[in-house]
Nucleic acid binder design. Sequence first.
DNA 1: CCGACATTTGACCAACTGGTCAAACTCACG
DNA 2: CGTGAGTTTGACCAGTTGGTCAAATGTCGG
Lengths: 204, 204
Amino acid sequence: MPKDRSPTRIQKRNRANILEAALEVFSQNGFRGATVDQVATAAGLSKPNLLYYFPSKEAIFTALLSELLDTWLDPLREIDPTGDPMEEILAYVQRKLQMSQDMPRESRLFANEIVQGAPRMIDTLSTDLRALVDDTETVFLGWMDAGRIARVHPRHLLFSIWSLTQHYADFEVQVRTLMTPEDPFDGAAVFLETLYRRMLAPQS
Amino acid sequence: MPKDRSPTRIQKRNRANILEAALEVFSQNGFRGATVDQVATAAGLSKPNLLYYFPSKEAIFTALLSELLDTWLDPLREIDPTGDPMEEILAYVQRKLQMSQDMPRESRLFANEIVQGAPRMIDTLSTDLRALVDDTETVFLGWMDAGRIARVHPRHLLFSIWSLTQHYADFEVQVRTLMTPEDPFDGAAVFLETLYRRMLAPQS
DNA sequence: CCGACATTTGACCAACTGGTCAAACTCACG
DNA sequence: CGTGAGTTTGACCAGTTGGTCAAATGTCGG
């Protein structure tokens, strides 16, 4: 394992290559389904060489998870409590959908982990994510109290956005199989905008 | 492997035990994450004994998948094209939600498989499921043409139902972590009814 | 209670996998 | 250049895993 001085040129390059390779391999096969050798090969390294940079398979995986989680939650943090409620939510939906399209591997990595009980994420979920969700709930409730969007259960609203947008990445094989030759993402953008406009339109 | 005469009492019992055990184990750990020994133990058998009933791990898994797929798609087949459109769709949503609550292992089994590219289901998806989805699309389009529900993309409508309902099973850990002490399924039933009522209400 | 067939098991194997280690090699820098 | 730290590798190991097999045991109709 490299000393923890300032990383050399080679260290930076290899660490980046490894994490990119790990994303590719882990998102396709899950943690147990992937082998260290696969990651090493995908990163252009030998197995012992890979293990010179990370002490274990587990370490690669957790490093990957924690590096990606921030990026993954960015769209949520971008919601502006002072903006127009409907437009803020619609914009959030589109950002999430765009992420599913551009970063399907990241989406599947998390999906894989959570479906299997999120053994390595449960702590983060119940602290950091929980706090972020609490904040968002407050914002949503404020908007509903002001009558600017319809009153629905704020957490289920948030879950519905995650569910609907990530579905197009996580279940891409199924979606594509059942939609060919049409492109799923084009229709999804329109569909989701309609859905949330109608559900959240202030009730007269 | 037992001869393919009519199965004996013991064969029936053991096959059933094995498939139940396989559902438990595979849905928790995925195909590669599960071991034959785990399945055998969960079924109350020794490993060689298990392999007397199924020729391989792969065979157990595919047997399980094909046995469950029918059950899994039953709620879709129950949609009555001659019924009231809004009520039919709402009832379908509630059936699917109920299945997520009662059969989360089945949901996760499929989720696991599809997230990883559905290598063992792609054929079924592109033939049987495709046909069923085509039929459903026709029914939805008929209802929309008659002006009885709002016009939206019928396939995305179907995907949205799958996505929203199965989310509560597949991502249960996350949902529960972020909702405790509230029970997710109670709120979900209300939320989803509201959502689809508003989205599908005929536009004046 | 016998014989044939069904079921179960312990011992075993080969392939795979995560990880180690000492030796070899490469690179930056004086 | 040369030297010491950083990097890479081949050989190796122990544990796990899917699967086999012959022998032992159980079951059931006659």
